[in-house]
């Protein structure tokens, strides 16, 4: 579908930002749709039953789990964030609602967040030396798939560990510029 109105990224541009500092690359992801899935009271079993055929994992606390089409991470007791490709899931909330019925409350979250993928190239360097300047997460000790809310530059963000050198960050969209600046400044201080 041709765009009716031209979308602007959280950084005020018409395409995703890519920044490199030393071995680190920061890539803005504008190709992901996001929605929250909250279990309705007493409907846990129904939700689990509907989620699996819909390709919606429901991981435990502090975990991200990949699935097809949805990748999901736990955000609160009985609540998850589900992401999927924007191209196929622009209407992610409707799609989830159709799949899960009234077992869950679904809320559109695509535009509430700015998403940055952080990747550090190189053996053994890892992201830890950057993240330790930004948040209190014990990144080296965390397993892959670890998902947590934490604070960076006074901002509440979600951090998902994808490997020793890779992480995804969801930050509040309105502060995308401040968050990116903080990431870049910290990276320049490290590398």
């Amino acid at each position: 579908m041709a765009e009716i109105l031209q979308a602007m990224t959280a950084l005020g541009a018409h395409g995703p930002a890519r920044v490199a500092v030393g071995p680190l690359s920061i890539t803005e992801r504008v190709d992901l749709a996001l929605a929250s899935v909250a279990e309705r009271r007493g409907r846990g079993a129904d939700l689990v039953g509907a989620a699996s055929p819909a390709g919606l994992p429901l991981p435990g606390p502090a975990r991200y789990q990949a699935g097809t089409p949805f990748g999901t991470f736990w955000v609160a007791p009985g609540m998850w964030f589900a992401e999927a490709p924007f191209a196929s899931h622009e209407w992610i909330a409707d799609q989830l609602r159709a799949a899960l019925g009234d077992a869950a409350s679904i809320t559109e979250q695509t535009d509430a967040w700015v998403i940055f993928d952080l990747v550090v190239v190189g053996e053994g360097v890892g992201l830890a030396s950057l993240l330790e300047r930004l948040c209190n997460v014990d990144f080296p000790a965390a397993p892959d798939g670890f998902a947590t809310r934490t604070v960076m530059d006074h901002l509440g963000i979600y951090l998902i560990r994808q490997g020793a050198g890779a992480a995804r960050i969801y930050g509040p969209r309105s502060s995308a510029q401040s968050l990116l600046h903080a990431l870049e400044a910290a990276a320049r201080a490290v590398w």
């Binding site: 929250s36 909250a38 279990e39 309705r40 009271r41 007493g42 009985g78 609540m79 409350s105 809320t107 559109e108 979250q109 695509t110 535009d111 509430a112 967040w113 509040p172 969209r173 309105s174």
Partner: peptide, 15 residues
């Protein structure tokens, strides 16, 4: 604690 209510902020999601 047993009310069936779910909350989430959508302040940033909508212009």
């Amino acid at each position: 604690p047993d009310m069936d209510v779910q909350l989430i902020s959508t302040t940033e999601a909508w212009a």
